[in-house]
Design a binder for these strands. Structure first.
Lengths: 233, 233
DNA sequence: ATATAAGGTGTATTTTTTACACTAAGCAAA
DNA sequence: TTTGCTTAGTGTAAAAAATACACCTTATAT
């Protein structure tokens, strides 16, 4: 971190775990640092919160700087404040996870506008390297959270294109939950929730039978569930 | 807050929602402030985090100061950092909920050692007044969290005496979930989890048939559940 | 002995979850 | 135009879990 702000002894920052789903893989956006500490290491996008900035606003700013997108789905999940977590002083960090639609949008975040980053990469969660600071821990906690959450809240749709096939949806659940699901049972259950809208449209550009496309239907969802549901177990 | 610390523009604090269960009621520990701002208002126990103190340690300290107890069950659940939340400047606060065994321990926290508090009271969640700062919001969020959590993690036992009856356990679930449960089904399900140890002992001092006492059995729990279970729905 | 108050127990029904395999459709290549 | 390839799409039976429901038992107090 180049110029340490004045009140470095009680600083806070925001770190974002940005998830994307592409080619059947769950990925997160990492930046490669080009400054000490942890020069050359991969890290989560994040930065200090400005003195007159709400935490949530700071998170949105960081998401915009790293992806060029606004209005991304985002949720705070934990605050990390162990004493030694930052080698240069006392920094507590509020962590958010976010989800963006990668498919058909692949060029999201080729170069973040943040200064201390050489480049940004989409890294599959399967190949996650050791990260700078305590970011590995932050990543693991975020992953646990979404694993849990995807079973009772409709967050999966934040990762898929607006129009998706049931197979894509199932693959996403399989990757996140890290287990195979039965096709018939998955479809039966998902459709029974009555939160999807079946479109009069099919997949294009595939060299086999095209699948029907579906949309997540917010109205139906709101109608059918006051608060929760319980997807895949 | 009497003497504003020097770096008031980036301060952080910890606030604790301390739950107790007594006489069939779920209560939280509030302090009555005797200083501006919010002089005379009820608030959550909380204070600034020291510059060389981990957040978690600060939470433990506040719990000890308010209750005289150590080793309390405690979990961080959210960080509040809206710009206007503290009338005197920028303070973000990391919130924890905690649970203590009130029954048979009623004299917990008659007088907290924190300076800015007139007194502490156990307030039923049904009678919660408007609280200082954004503490009402913090309380509501904590309540949502434990409502949710009690259905899949064994946190209820943190609120009960070590030896408890199934009826007490059921009452606690009923209060937290805010709905009546069927006695036979509740017992069947709870016993089926096989996480309780039935004691050779009965309730004492009641003027009716005494109930069997049970203990939460951590070993059984660990054996039967790698991570989760799914209590009452 | 009797009244009182909670303790403690079982079964039938419905709902949900699971396991499981083949035909249909669309495209591509021969 | 036929054939092969690949994924789409579908139903049923069995098991497990959740629900609804009521009466006798036991300890204490009077």
């Amino acid at each position: 971190m180049e110029n340490l702000p004045e009140h470095f002894d009680s600083l806070f920052s925001v770190d974002c775990v940005i998830f994307g789903f592409d080619e059947g893989e769950l990925k997160i956006l990492l930046i490669e640092r080009n400054e000490a500490p942890f020069d050359g290491w991969f890290a989560l996008p994040g930065y200090f919160v400005e003195p007159t900035e709400a935490i949530e606003t700071a998170a949105q700013r960081i998401l915009f700087e790293s992806t060029g997108l606004k209005g991304i789905f985002m949720e705070q999940f934990y605050t990390f404040g162990a004493l030694g977590r930052h080698p240069q002083g006392r920094v507590i960090t509020v962590a958010y996870y976010a989800m963006i639609r990668l498919t058909g949008n692949k060029e999201v975040a080729p170069l973040p506008t943040t200064h201390f980053a050489k480049r940004a990469v989409w890294m599959s969660v399967k190949d996650m390297p050791e990260l700078a600071f305590d970011h590995s821990r932050i990543f693991r906690k975020s992953f646990e959270k979404i694993k849990n959450k995807i079973s009772y809240q409709p967050i999966a749709f934040e990762l898929l294109p607006e129009k998706f096939t049931l197979t894509q949806l199932q693959q996403l659940y399989e990757v996140v939950l890290n287990k195979k699901l039965d096709k018939r049972n998955f479809r039966k259950k998902m459709l029974a929730y009555d939160i999807l809208k079946e479109l009069d449209e099919k997949q294009k550009g595939v060299s086999y039978r095209a699948a029907k496309l579906y949309k997540f239907d917010k109205r139906k969802y709101a109608k059918n569930f006051q608060k929760e549901l319980s997807f895949t177990r």
